[in-house]
Simulated assay, not measured.
Amino acid sequence: MPVEYLSAEQEARYGRFATEPSPGELEQFFRLDTRALELARAKRRSATRLGWAVQWGTVRMLGTFLTEDPTAVPASVVRFVAEQLGLDDKHFAEYGTRAQTVYEHAWEIRDTYGYRDFAAGEAELREFLAARVWSSLEGPRALFDRAVVWLVNNRVLLPGVTSLARMVAALRQEENDRLHAALYEVVPHELRTEMVRLLEVPEKKRVSELERLRLGPMRVSGRAMELALDRAREVWGLGPAWWMPDGCRPRG
């Protein structure tokens, strides 16, 4: 499935700090609670205390651990966390010199706070996105953003950006196909035939009948109102009453 639908901004911010976090985001994601403070302070070295705490906030905000480059974090984040631990933020530069420590911290945070791999939460995410497809007109970009927010909020670790983009695009196509098939089944055969006819461009005309009916009046006048009413009667004549609730159908 194509993944080119993602914007440059979406790709840039996926699983990384594209900009400096706002003061509100620092408070929301990097304010250490009692448990996090205890776990961070239990580390032996200043660098590992600070690094553990930064990783804790990072996964809360981004939905992933920066294990490949654990120091790729804005300076404002490091300062904010260091102040809470009573440490000099310069110690953070030493974090990651032992890669195993970084991974051990990620595993500890994951197990302690109940983070799951993407495979463990994918079915729930698909159910959530399918409901969005059926109840909204959101495009793939909006669905992708909703998927990221859902993963972060439900403590499911982000997969690769291409994997998630392809999954969202494929699911949206599948659910739209199901939706269209369901609508097709309940539409009477006569109405289906008439709808197909509307796609044809009559002889000596420039647009199809569907396009003609779709366009509303271009000016405000008595004649335009008359034409609009004729157009409404013509649309109603196609037989839309089969899908309307009884209370919405016109009388007479």
Rank of each mutant, 00 (worst) to 15 (best):
A181Y: 14
L151V: 12
R166W: 03
L179P: 01
P159N: 04
L143S: 05
V168W: 00
V161C: 15
F128W: 07
R166Q: 14
V168L: 09
S135V: 00
E138H: 10
L143C: 06
N154V: 09
A130N: 06
E175Q: 13
E185A: 15
S136V: 04
R146K: 13
V149E: 15
F128A: 11
L157C: 10
A182V: 02
V156Q: 07
G139V: 05
D145T: 07
W150M: 05
V152G: 03
L183Y: 14
F144D: 00
P140V: 05
E190N: 11
M167A: 12
E127F: 01
P159L: 03
L129C: 11
A131V: 02
M167K: 02
L171E: 03
E175T: 09
V133G: 01
A169R: 11
R146S: 11
A182C: 04
V133T: 05
V187G: 02
E190C: 06
E185T: 15
N176C: 11
E127S: 14
A165D: 02
L183T: 04
W134N: 09
R132V: 06
V133D: 02
E138F: 05
A147C: 09
F128P: 00
S163N: 07
L183M: 13
A131P: 00
A170L: 08
A169Q: 11
A181H: 15
S135L: 08
L164T: 05
A130L: 07
A123F: 04
A181G: 12
M167Y: 00
V149C: 09
V186W: 07
V187S: 02
L171K: 02
L129Q: 05
L157V: 13
L137E: 15
E174M: 09
A147F: 04
V148E: 08
G160H: 13
W150T: 01
G139K: 10
L125Q: 05
A169C: 10
N153T: 07
V148S: 05
L158C: 13
H180P: 00
R132L: 12
D145R: 06
R155I: 02
L179F: 14
D145P: 00
P140I: 02
W134R: 15
E127G: 14
N154K: 10
V152Q: 10
R172Y: 04
R146M: 10
Q173R: 12
L171Q: 04
T162S: 07
E190T: 13
R141Q: 14
A170M: 04
A131N: 04
V148L: 10
E190M: 07
P140L: 00
R146H: 12
P188Y: 06
L171Y: 03
N176W: 13
R132I: 03
E127W: 01
Q173I: 05
V161F: 12
A142K: 14
E127I: 03
L171R: 02
M167W: 00
V187C: 13
G139I: 05
L137S: 15
